[in-house]
Nucleic acid binder design. Structure first.
Length: 571
DNA sequence: GCCGTTTTCGGCCCGACTGTTTTCAGTCG
């Protein structure tokens, strides 16, 4: 039972209590609990097993702790089962429809017998809904559109896709005059690995023409709202875009508000309240006097805090750290001095060694490592022992040929099903950088997978564990592995944990990167580039590292070459 | 249901938009 599965139990309870019309604060506790559990680095199943006191986790009290223990120990929860018996199973799904909340679900169920999306659609089509409390024809039409949009199955988008949409929509709006600034905020500004919607903040005096231009966007499928300072669109691809116009006097508080996260903002507002202040997107107020709002720095200062980088704003301890002056100095793209994971035409890459080296030199790097696949990854043109030795010579030649950058001899060797490596130790000894990784047999049981990886990295030739969980964002779940055990071994043995910067992977993720740091492991951010263009994916790895609270010293490819080589050497 | 630098009881973030209303409830972020 992993934390995400446990969180789903709590969310389900919250949804059902919501529809029943229970105390909203009680419901909020379950939702907060679910969010906390989702964000937790440590595995709850393990914590329960070790008899740890779960109520020490903020937001988890006695009642939630007891329920979590029951879920972990029995795989189910009587409280939830009882709750489910009281309502039809199709009701919670209705909450996912845009514009439908618990009150409407309750109303439709009790007064119109609606118990699923299908029956809601039938009721709306046949006009059974208007006539109910505060229900008219427009609402009926809106519900049908919401169902249609939901069935198209929008969902979340990878951050790199989010940037593309943000760029095209800001380009479109930027043609307007009188617009001072246009800033994508929200989860994109926090550099979350996926985004659920796009929040754009506009600074201007006269918002009306902007709202009109925005809602006329030709890539929009549906206009969800068109107000005087705020409008929302649904793009054809299913992404929702919110635009909010504010005045420049409110720039800081508005940006703070629209960057989120919601949990961070709520925590700030609580803090403000305790100080006798009030926070909104319009500023920070003492009684009716605005005491801050022009910049984010002002706003944080008014709350007695230093500015907090957007990547940290998740209410994962950043406010407490800020208060104590213990915020990390986050690693930055310009700290990066090299890239130690990339492929060339020798396996499944698109460019030559020399091309990759020159492109990396353009980025200002001092070194790279060329790391082809090993033979087990046949589909990617993996090399066997003999081929790799020959290839290492070619790397040496390229290193002599290309001035101004050091090209290290590397390999990405497969960890086989039994935990042995796919190439001989004496071959690996010839490399400067040995990356170990898994590319097959993803569905081993957790214990076996953990043992396999640990055996792999215990091989003294291995320097780096690449994409340690094997996930592909929105495509493939991580494999089942006890990451804590793996990191413990890596930290003890001096094996470096990779943050794979490809936006499809981002593996390790933010939470696990922070866990690795806290457990004393070193990390490296690699592009895993398969072409010269992909070297630029490094920035996504930086985003993840920053969200994981990493500083320059935690990331070894910020080190000069000599120091890097010293760290890679396992004695 | 959670929580405590006024609190172990009594609070719990704040405001825009919509659609239905004659002053506001519901939803969303």
């Amino acid at each position: 039972m992993n934390n995400q599965e446990i969180a789903r139990f709590l969310t389900e309870i919250a949804d059902l209590l919501d529809i029943k019309g229970e105390n909203p604060f009680r419901i909020r506790s379950y939702r907060n609990g679910a969010r906390t559990v989702n964000n937790l680095a440590e595995d709850l199943t393990g914590m329960v097993g070790e008899g740890k006191n779960l109520t020490e986790i903020p937001g988890i009290g006695g009642s939630l702790a007891e329920k979590i223990r029951e879920i972990v120990e029995t795989g189910k929860l009587k409280f939830l089962d009882d709750l489910k018996k009281q309502l039809p199973p199709g009701l919670p799904e209705l909450l996912k429809l845009q514009g439908i909340g618990p009150k409407k679900v309750k109303l439709f169920y009790e007064k119109a017998g609606v118990d699923s999306i299908e029956s809601l659609a039938r009721a709306a089509e046949s006009g059974k809904l208007h006539g109910l409390d505060r229900m008219g024809e427009k609402t009926e039409a809106k519900i049908l559109r919401a169902i249609e949009n939901y069935r198209k199955g929008a969902g979340r988008f990878r951050i790199d896709i989010g940037f593309t949409y943000a760029e095209s929509i800001t380009n479109y709006l930027n043609t307007l005059t009188g617009l001072k600034e246009l800033i994508p905020a929200g989860s994109l500004r926090r550099r979350q690995e996926t985004i659920g919607d796009l929040d754009i903040l506009a600074i201007c005096h006269d918002p009306a023409p902007l709202m009109d231009q925005f809602t006329a966007y030709d890539k929009a499928e549906d206009i969800l709202a068109h107000g005087s300072t705020k409008s929302s669109l649904l793009l054809k691809e299913g992404l929702q875009v919110d635009l909010r116009a504010m005045d420049s006097r409110e720039f800081g508080s508005a940006l703070l508000y629209f960057t989120g996260s919601k949990a961070h903002n709520i925590a700030l507002r609580k803090r403000a309240k305790a100080m006798g202040l009030k926070v909104s997107e319009y500023g920070i107020f003492r009684a009716d006097d605005a005491i801050a709002g022009k910049t984010e720095e002002d706003c944080y200062r008014a709350l007695g805090l230093p500015w907090i980088p957007p990547e940290l704003r998740e209410n994962r301890g950043e406010i407490e750290a800020a208060e104590k002056g213990e915020l990390p100095r986050l690693v930055d793209l310009k700290d990066i001095r090299g890239d130690c994971h990339m492929h060339t035409t020798a396996s499944d890459g698109k460019n030559s060694i020399e091309d990759m080296a020159r492109a990396a030199r353009e980025l200002g790097y001092q070194y790279i490592a060329i790391t082809e696949h090993s033979q087990a990854v046949r589909i990617a043109g993996g090399l066997n022992d003999k081929e790799l030795i020959r290839h290492l010579h070619r790397i040496e030649e390229a290193d002599r040929k290309v001035e101004g950058i050091r090209i290290l001899r590397g390999v990405e060797v497969d960890i086989r099903g039994d935990g042995t490596l796919d190439l001989k130790d004496e071959t690996l000894k010839e490399c400067d950088v040995v990356i170990a990784a898994i590319h097959s047999r993803f569905n081993l049981p957790e214990k076996e997978m953990t043992k396999r990886i640990i055996r792999g990295i215990k091989n003294r030739q291995v320097n780096i564990l690449a994409h340690p969980t094997g996930r592909l964002i929105l495509e493939r779940e991580p494999y089942r592995v006890d990451l804590k055990e793996v990191i413990k071994v890596a930290a003890g043995e001096g094996v470096i944990m990779e943050i794979n910067a490809n936006p499809r992977r981002l593996d390790l993720n933010d939470i696990h990167s922070r866990m690795a740091k806290d457990m004393g492991a070193k990390l490296i951010i690699n592009s895993d580039a398969h072409s010269i263009d992909q070297l630029r994916l490094m920035k996504y790895g930086i985003f993840t590292a920053r969200r994981g609270w990493l500083e320059q010293k935690d990331v070894i490819n910020t080190y000069p070459l000599k120091k890097l080589l010293a760290i890679l050497k396992r004695t």
